[in-house]
């Protein structure tokens, strides 16, 4: 994207928070919502707009687990590793997903379709063990269910649905 266009877009996001104390984290949330991660060129523009050194922005991004510096896959697969999920088989689900997608947590698949991550408690411990894909939460998941769930989101399945 052209720098001017990008600048305008980021300015739009930042403007709603301009002048408010402690706005940096909230602006970063909106940027991540928009782009899926916090690209470096956006940080650069943001630094100018908010008049905050780039180092301060990166200081915040790298401290919080929620912010990403690399683009995520099309579908984010989150495996809950809260205590309840851990006890009820979360680690096995993670193992199965690593095996199926051939990635480690924090990586995207080669085709960019899936991004695998481990999360700390999604707050639905009654449903343990839980796997979340995008916004959809799957509760009471068993190891044998995983391949079926993933197949739902594969490129082939999506192409079929589109047709």
């Amino acid at each position: 994207m052209e720098k001017a266009a990008l600048e305008q877009e980021v300015r739009q996001i930042a403007d709603s928070w301009k002048g408010k104390d402690g706005n940096l984290i909230m602006v970063l949330h909106q940027i991540q919502n928009r782009y899926g991660y916090v690209p470096r060129n956006v940080s650069l523009v943001l630094s100018e707009i908010l008049n905050v050194p780039l180092a301060r922005i990166y200081e915040v991004i790298t401290f919080y687990h929620f912010f990403r510096l690399t683009p995520p896959g099309k579908h984010t697969v989150s495996v809950c590793m809260g205590t309840a999920c851990y006890l009820k088989g979360g680690p096995e689900l993670l193992g199965e997903l690593e095996h199926l997608l051939c990635v480690k947590p924090g990586e995207s698949t080669k085709d960019g379709q899936f991004y695998l991550e481990v999360v700390r408690c999604l707050g639905c411990c009654g449903l343990a063990p839980v796997v979340k894909i995008g916004d959809k939460v799957y509760g009471g998941v068993k190891k044998k269910d995983i391949s079926g769930i993933i197949a739902h989101y594969s490129k082939e399945a999506e192409a079929k649905a589109a047709a």
Partner: peptide
């Protein structure tokens, strides 16, 4: 900021 894994009453 309910961070305790396994608690969700605040939510």
């Amino acid at each position: 900021d309910e961070g305790d894994p396994g608690a969700y009453m605040d939510r």
